[in-house]
Simulated assay, not measured.
Amino acid sequence: MSSMSTEILAFVLAISGWVLISSTLPTDYWKVSSIDGTVITTATFWSNLWKTCVTDSTGVSNCKDFPSMLALDGYIQVCRGLMISAVCLGFFGSIFALVGMKCTKIGGSDKTKARVACLAGINFILSGLCSLTACSLYAHRITSEFFDPMFIAQKFELGAALFIGWAGSVLCILGGVVFCFSLAEGFSKSRANYAYSGAPSFISKSNGKATENYHKGPPDYSNSSRQFGKNAYV
């Protein structure tokens, strides 16, 4: 697989993951709980990073935003910061990827584009790690409350937003790793081409010296033979 096709594959993976992470941030169902009646579900409680809501059997939802950021639980504040960081890192990573890819016409020399592509891969990896940490922390809080026999408040289950966030995190990390792999492949090819281009130059120089000596002709030993003749019997 060529380096350009590898970079295109990495870009598609990373951008797809970043889109999923960005869509996870405003998604409603981070945690879900329901109250069942005899026949139908009477109410569904769900919550995300910004509000908590309840939906009755007729489909009408009543939501309440979290009143104060400072009064929130610590894990929600951490998840907010990590998800916002993941979106920002993915945004800058996509810009660096467009500049550093070989199929684009911007970015300068190949060496500069390779460095920018490496920076894009690092940004995508960090974005995936931030989102993965946020979703895992939120899921750990839900599961710890659900399986705690001493927790008497309403228990929730994992919502669809967590699975979307995990999928986007994996795609971002894979895209960043493939970006770094394509960079290492490009460096190895450039070194091989440099070593191959250095060999003909050495041969041409040695051939040039041989050709120069050939045009000069055989060495002249007449002077040395005359001097030897004069001093032969001394």
Rank of each mutant, 00 (worst) to 15 (best):
S188K: 15
T52G: 02
D73V: 09
V178H: 06
F91S: 14
I152A: 02
A97R: 01
P67K: 08
T143G: 00
S94E: 02
L132P: 00
A117D: 00
Y29A: 09
F181M: 13
C79E: 03
T112R: 13
D56Y: 12
G128V: 04
N223K: 10
W166L: 09
I95G: 05
L162I: 14
A71N: 13
H215E: 14
F181K: 10
S201A: 14
V99G: 04
S201P: 11
D73H: 02
S5G: 11
G59P: 11
I21N: 03
S3E: 08
F147H: 11
A160G: 06
S5E: 14
K105C: 09
T44H: 07
G176S: 05
Y194E: 15
S206M: 13
I173G: 00
Y196E: 15
Y194C: 12
G198V: 11
G93S: 10
G175Y: 03
D56C: 08
G37V: 14
S188I: 05
G100W: 01
I142W: 02
S3H: 04
I8H: 07
G93K: 03
S68M: 08
V234R: 11
C103I: 12
P200S: 01
T58C: 02
F45P: 01
C180D: 03
G128Q: 04
C53H: 08
L49C: 06
V116Q: 01
G17I: 12
S136I: 04
F96W: 05
P149M: 02
L70R: 08
V170Y: 05
S34W: 09
A184Y: 07
G186H: 05
A86W: 01
S182H: 01
C135T: 11
E145S: 09
V170W: 03
T143E: 03
F228L: 11
A167R: 00
Q227E: 15
I106H: 03
G128H: 03
A117Q: 06
W46E: 05
R191N: 15
M1A: 14
L9M: 13
F45D: 02
T27I: 03
S131Q: 02
A134V: 07
Y29R: 13
F228E: 12
F228N: 10
K51D: 05
S131I: 00
S136W: 01
M83L: 08
S188G: 12
K189R: 13
F124G: 01
K230Y: 14
V32T: 13
W50I: 09
D65L: 14
N48A: 07
F163K: 04
A117G: 04
E212G: 06
S201H: 11
G176T: 01
T42H: 06
N207M: 14
A14I: 04
D28G: 00
T6Q: 14
T24H: 00
R191Q: 12
L126K: 02
L132M: 11
W166V: 05
V178A: 12
F187Q: 13
A153I: 07
Y29H: 11
S2D: 15
